[in-house]
Design a protein around this nucleic acid. Sequence first.
DNA 1: GCTAGAGCTTGACGCTACGTCAAGGTCAAG
DNA 2: CTTGACCTTGACGTAGCGTCAAGCTCTAGC
Lengths: 254, 254
Amino acid sequence: MEWSVQQIARIAGTTSRTLRHYDDVGLLKPSRTGDNGYRFYNQASLVRLQRILLLRDLGLGLPAIAEVLGHEPDAVKALGRHLDWLRQEQDRLARQVASVRQTIEALKEGEQIMAEKMFDGFDHTQYKDEVEERWGKDAYAQGDSWWRGMGPAEKDAWKQRSRQLGSDWIAAAESGAAADSAEAQELARRQVEWLTGIPGTPASATGREGDLKGYVTGLGEMYVADPRFAANYGGEAGAAFVRDALRIYVAKNL
Amino acid sequence: MEWSVQQIARIAGTTSRTLRHYDDVGLLKPSRTGDNGYRFYNQASLVRLQRILLLRDLGLGLPAIAEVLGHEPDAVKALGRHLDWLRQEQDRLARQVASVRQTIEALKEGEQIMAEKMFDGFDHTQYKDEVEERWGKDAYAQGDSWWRGMGPAEKDAWKQRSRQLGSDWIAAAESGAAADSAEAQELARRQVEWLTGIPGTPASATGREGDLKGYVTGLGEMYVADPRFAANYGGEAGAAFVRDALRIYVAKNL
DNA sequence: GCTAGAGCTTGACGCTACGTCAAGGTCAAG
DNA sequence: CTTGACCTTGACGTAGCGTCAAGCTCTAGC
């Protein structure tokens, strides 16, 4: 299978000019060039292009992208790495949502605004250094080995604990308790404690405690954004209850 | 409360140069200018700056941002609008994750790659027209009035239905069924049917059926990304089961 | 065989949103 | 009265393309 520039451009949602630019700077050479000078691309080109656009979306410059592509010829491993970055982006977006929501509430009630919290999740520059720096270090071994490594009894205990937490939340939400009530705050504490037991959370994995705040806040936002989750907790109102309780807990205790 | 350029820059995660640029082009004037020419900003500046950076992140150019800021002086309403766009971005990211995961699997198993599906969620240009175009039309009334408008009996029925769906998924996952089995596919069908009953989903709200595909796929990815959800379904394996079943269903039936 | 139209090519210049010096005033601390 | 951090206004540089311009190529229809 082989495609022309325009076809590739349409498929990938970019322009032919961009592709010619990538050819010029040596980032993505055509797989074949016709006698007439026409550029043709194959499947390998598509995979490489996907990686390029991904890294560009993450804010990397073209030279940086070239270096990353050069350092990791194993496409599968590299794409796995990219997935991690995308998850980080999801995190950042969730925190951004939380920031905006907070601004809205503050404006509505005429409150004083906490300047720093307004911009959580807005700084998009973290990767630029980080990506090239951390490339070599393959602390990228964890995966889901955590869950698979547990025995049946441990698995049961874990599920039991998570379900208990879930039904306690529901009960609290339906009882009409306030998000800042002692009951809700105790639930939030348990939830955070529970979360830190999962590998991959900022506190347990990297040890950077500050990140836990944004992480928990972001998760709260996801609960509301995901209708599947929201429904489990009695509609948006229930999920909003969880989110608010978590946010208050984070503000007070972390 | 008043801040200098550097302070604002640090808080917002940008640079002083950027702020001076925004001053030059008239996008964000300082709230006060000292006799020495120093720029000073207040809380209103912060709110406006948050909106600017938000819109910039969404890919708008500075003139477009200026126009949007000019057309909606009510900051609260406007920020609500921005939240919608952020949710769209979360959607796009989730679909991007799905695309990359699909590429990885295809590469692993040496399969043929479906070119179009590789780039779902990559085109980031939709807003640029859309944002300015749709600004006036305030189809922005829905909110969560949907849930609040239901009677108690309806609410109970709804919750019952969603919980039933949840426990059926768990049972299927624990029984070791395959994601493409008839059992799992029937669950996926019910899940989609259930989803389309929620206002805000692409099919029910906009009527554009094509969007439902990406929406469902994206939701599946969120289930895996969110450890809270994953735990409810027996760890990553359970959530992955749900995700895979949904993805297969979408590919075959939508 | 001729022509129209869509698609391809290589330049080359333009543009946006800043980064990055340069050259110099301002201000609190010691 | 100096040091160092912070501020100012220019002014030029740069990345990643967009956007013509001028011309070659291929397919389709008459």
